[in-house]
Design a protein around this nucleic acid. Structure first.
Lengths: 258, 258
DNA sequence: ATTTCATTGCGTCGGCGAGACACAACTGGG
DNA sequence: CCCAGTTGTGTCTCGCCGACGCAATGAAAT
């Protein structure tokens, strides 16, 4: 077993660089092929998956820390990010993972006092990204980085399953107040795509015709030309968001529930 | 100037007891005489007011820390508490307050490393309490503890003004999903009281008759006998919540917006 | 006792949104 | 050229919501 110099450097510098006992975790959502996806990491030597996370520099805004994690993992700069919950259970941390890592890499540590072996309180953020613009990259600690369908998830580490559920709940509550559709869909999209996105987030089916009437009623969409590229049957119109009207409408909240 | 032994004891023990760089702040709401109130503290030697706050024991759940702060400040045990936002600006802390306190009390400290002079990230909670059940008590650091009308607030410390605004926004968004009315009103209340509560939270006036129709439509209230005690003009009915139906309805969310 | 009058309880009316559903138009494949 | 599955548009009904009318109440004024 050879030591990983990146990990060794990270673990030596971290205590001086980062806030103690605090982390951020990002639930990264995207939408592709009519399915809501979430980006998960698999750590070396661990079976379970986790949300990308990171630590907070000593003089860094927590939001900036989340933005930085996202940039490192997706390559994306200007992402929609929203803080949604703090996970503060005293026993949520799994220190064995880090201890094993340090042992494998020959790092010497004091079990009782080492920075990374403390209890961590984590701030949950969710991110909305456009699937096609992302090239997921694993980080120092991780082996794979992969999109998972929201309905077919693998076993997850620690409390990361709960974190995902909370993020989904928050997303549902925010859907009328934040530009969810705009950030998850490509610039141009069809009505069925937008509908499937809503259905995935809300976890229920909607009537196609009523959905269209309601969404168009908000006056936040611009209709473009037809799309024909290899679609079976009748080709649907393409739409894009009318950003000015969209953001104006979101300030008040889109009327009506789902 | 005499030293305050409680403060000295607190500041000596704190670094070993509490999580570093992390705190909780509680925005405590109540409702009295048709007005939404907030409980604020005035610290010794400071002009500005603040929300009651505290620190997190090393093995304590963040929610329990907030509950503890609340218990100490209001004497109340079972309070509705809701985490609503994390305030993570790197420069939000005002260390001068604590430094002055230490100097006044003759506590020796290292400015660069002392636990309380670090940057603190705070988790905001709001609490809903019944006005009549509370006997506010100041804490070790504070001089006064007082209810303030939400529309006539004093100057506040650090970012505590923003914290209050965020709490109010959260309260507005949660009003159809959490037992806001139940926790802020006495067991028995009148329809005008309930309406004024909603108006205070939402920041706008509602039509008396439509409000009554809508609320009664939820089927979450039980109508009791008349009240006569020294009310001018026609005495209104008294209501109480039908807890079973109330909680059932809240799970789905009360339908319709405000 | 009677009058006063702000407040409260209950009702009406019109409009609009939401759910359920019908039907015509389109387009690629056989 | 027809078929099949999908999309665009419209209809109908019901219930909710905002705006508002009106009678009943009961402490205070006379």
């Amino acid at each position: 077993m050879t030591a990983n110099p990146d990990f060794v450097k990270f673990i030596e510098e971290a205590p001086g660089q980062f806030m103690p006992s605090m982390s951020v975790d990002c639930v990264i959502f995207s939408f592709h092929e009519y399915e809501l996806k979430v980006l998960l990491l698999k750590i070396h030597f661990e079976q379970k998956w986790s949300h990308p996370g990171g630590f907070i520099f000593k003089h860094e805004h927590t939001n900036d820390a989340a933005t930085r994690v996202l940039k490192e993992r997706t390559g994306l700069d200007k992402v929609f990010l929203q803080q949604f919950h703090v996970f503060g259970e005293p026993d949520r941390s799994d220190t064995a993972i880090h201890e094993n890592n340090m042992i494998r890499n020959g790092v010497r540590y004091n079990r009782a006092t080492h920075w990374i072996l403390q209890r961590f309180i984590t701030i949950g953020y969710y991110a909305l990204v456009e699937f096609s613009e992302v090239s997921p990259l694993p980080d120092v600690l991780s082996e794979y980085c992969q999109w998972w369908n929201i309905n077919q998830l693998p076993a997850m580490m620690m409390d990361h399953g709960q974190i995902l559920q909370k993020a989904l709940e928050a997303l549902r509550l925010h859907i009328n107040y934040h530009p969810v559709g705009y950030n998850l869909l490509p610039k141009k999209f069809t009505m069925p795509e937008l509908q499937k996105l809503y259905e995935s987030i809300l976890g229920k089916n909607l009537d196609r015709r009523n959905f269209q009437r309601k969404i168009l009623g908000y006056q936040i969409l611009k209709r473009l030309k037809d799309k024909k590229k290899g679609v079976a049957y009748k080709s649907p119109y393409l739409y894009s968001f009318d950003l000015r009207k969209y953001h104006k409408a979101l300030k008040e909240g889109l009327k009506g529930g789902w």
